[in-house]
Amino acid sequence: MKCKLILGALAMALAPAAHSQCCGFGMSYDNVVVWPQPDLRIPVPSATNAKKAPPVLPKSRPAVQANAHKLAQHFPLDKRMEMEKIYLQSMDVYLQVEKKMGWTPRDMAGGLAAFLVGNYMVLKNTEVPDEAFNAVARQIRAQNKLQNINDRNEADKVRDVFEQSAMIGAFMALAYKSHQQQAQPAAVYENMRNAARENLQLVLKGDPANLFIDKNGMRFQ
C-alpha cells in the first residue's frame, strides 16, 4: 500500500468517534459477539501439538468488497469511498502476509491474530516480529472457541469476522509502520491508540495496557 494512503487515513483519525459503531478503525459490536474471545492463560502449543488443531476456514464465499464497504460506513460520508479502497488494499496486504507466514489461505486464526497484533502495535507503539505473530496465531488456533466457531454461528457472520479482523489488523499495522516513517501529530496518533485500545478491550475483555506479546504468544502481565 502506498504510504500516502495510510497517511491520509491517519489524518482521518481525527474524525469524531460518533461516526462509528465503536471507533473509526474499530470492529462492530455485532462482530464482537461472534469473535471467539481467547483464553490467554492457554500457552502456545508446541510444533507437535499445534498440528492437532487444524485450520478453521469460513464456510461462506468471500465478501471482501462488502466488508470493506461495511467498515467504511464508520467514517464521515465524504471519507467513505476512500476508506473502502484503503480497507480493500489492507486485505491485499494481509493475504500477502498470510502467504509469507505459510498459513492455510483464509485460516480464521490468521485473521484474528492480525487484528490483535495490529492493534497491539499501535497501542504499544512497538513492532511485533513474525515469530511472535505466528505464535499468536497458533495460540488462537488451538482454542476450542475457535475450533467450534462454525458450529455456533451463522456462516456469513464467521466470514465477516475473519475478513473485517484481517482488514483492520493489517490497516493498523501499516498505520504503525507509516507513523515510524513519518511521525503524525500527537493528537492524530493518540486517537489511533484510543481506537486500538477499545478494539482490544472489546475482544479480550481485559485491560489492554497489561497485554504483552512475544514469541510465547499473548498474555496479561
Rank of each mutant, 00 (worst) to 15 (best):
P43Q: 13
R80V: 07
E98D: 15
K99Q: 04
Q89L: 13
G102N: 10
L71K: 01
A63P: 06
S60L: 07
H74E: 06
A68V: 11
Y29E: 12
H69G: 00
D107S: 10
D30P: 07
H69I: 02
P58N: 03
V34N: 06
P55V: 06
R80N: 11
A66G: 02
P58C: 08
P36E: 06
P55C: 05
Q89G: 07
R61Q: 15
H69A: 09
V44F: 02
L71M: 12
D39C: 11
A50W: 05
A50F: 04
I42S: 04
Q96C: 10
M81S: 15
M83T: 03
V93C: 05
N49D: 15
L71A: 03
P62N: 13
A50V: 09
E84D: 05
L71F: 14
T104M: 02
I42V: 14
Q37I: 11
K99G: 00
M91S: 02
S90K: 01
H74Y: 13
R41F: 11
L71P: 02
K100N: 09
M91G: 01
L71W: 10
R80M: 12
L40C: 11
A47S: 11
L77H: 15
K52M: 13
L40H: 06
S90Y: 03
A50H: 12
P45I: 08
R106D: 02
A66I: 05
W35R: 03
P105E: 06
A47M: 11
W103Y: 13
Q96T: 14
Q73F: 15
V44I: 10
Q65V: 13
W35Q: 00
E84V: 11
Y94K: 00
D30I: 06
D92W: 00
R106Y: 11
P38K: 06
Y94T: 01
S46P: 02
K79Q: 15
K52W: 10
W103D: 00
K79L: 14
K59C: 07
D78L: 15
A66C: 04
S46W: 11
N49C: 07
Q37A: 13
K51W: 07
Q37C: 13
L88C: 12
L77F: 14
N67L: 04
I86Q: 01
R61A: 13
Y29M: 13
V56L: 01
D30V: 08
S28D: 14
W103V: 00
P38R: 07
Q65L: 13
Y94C: 01
W103K: 00
K79F: 14
Q89V: 04
S46M: 07
Q73V: 05
P62K: 12
T48F: 11
Q89S: 10
P38V: 08
K79D: 02
Y29C: 08
P76D: 13
K100D: 03
D107F: 01
A66T: 04
K99C: 00
M101W: 15
P105M: 06
F75T: 01
K70S: 12
S60G: 07
